[in-house]
Simulated scan of single mutants.
Amino acid sequence: MENYIGYFKALRESKGLTLREVERQTEVSNAYLSQLESGKIKQPSPLTLHKLSEIYGVGYDILMEKVGYPPLKKKVAEINRDKSSIALRVGSITEDEEVELLNYLKFMRSRKK
């Protein structure tokens, strides 16, 4: 599944992180991260996705589904969290729109520095 190409890079950049910074915080090599961002890694391990979900502030279940794993069953707390998600405020968005929103967020955050 390749619908995530560009997504991981946009997530990283929206947080203002370099590949090396993510590597230091997650112990996932920057070479592996680069290959993930470019789509060369087809299905990263759940452990890697869990580490990335924590540093990027994105739900683990979202990253799992993004790379093609079956949807996880959601707990009540997660369902309540999802009720405040941006998709509910702006309507459903496409994969491309999500990447563009992340890129715009990166731009907005860079202006604040």
Rank of each mutant, 00 (worst) to 15 (best):
K9L: 04
N103H: 09
K9V: 00
S45N: 03
G39Y: 03
S110A: 11
A31M: 05
Q35C: 08
L88D: 05
L49G: 06
V58I: 09
Y104P: 01
S14G: 08
R109T: 09
L105V: 11
T94P: 02
H50D: 14
L19H: 01
R111K: 14
K40W: 01
R89W: 08
S84Q: 13
L72F: 11
I93N: 01
Q25F: 02
E23T: 01
A31Q: 05
E27R: 14
K74Y: 04
G39V: 09
R109F: 02
A77L: 04
E37M: 09
Y60T: 08
S84D: 08
I79T: 14
E65W: 12
S92K: 13
I41E: 05
S38K: 13
S84T: 15
E100D: 10
G57C: 08
N30R: 15
G91F: 04
Y56M: 06
E27T: 11
P70S: 06
S34I: 00
R89K: 12
R20H: 14
A10W: 01
H50M: 11
K73E: 11
V67Y: 07
Y60R: 13
F8R: 01
H50K: 15
S84K: 14
K51Q: 15
N80E: 15
S110G: 00
E97Y: 10
L36W: 01
D82Y: 10
M108T: 06
R111L: 11
D82M: 02
I79R: 11
S34A: 11
E21H: 08
L63F: 14
T94L: 07
L52K: 02
E65S: 15
E27Y: 11
I93V: 15
V67C: 09
K106G: 07
E95H: 10
K9G: 09
E100L: 08
Q43V: 13
K15D: 04
S53D: 07
V76G: 09
H50R: 15
K112N: 00
E21G: 06
Y69F: 13
E97C: 08
K74T: 04
V99N: 12
L17T: 01
G57K: 00
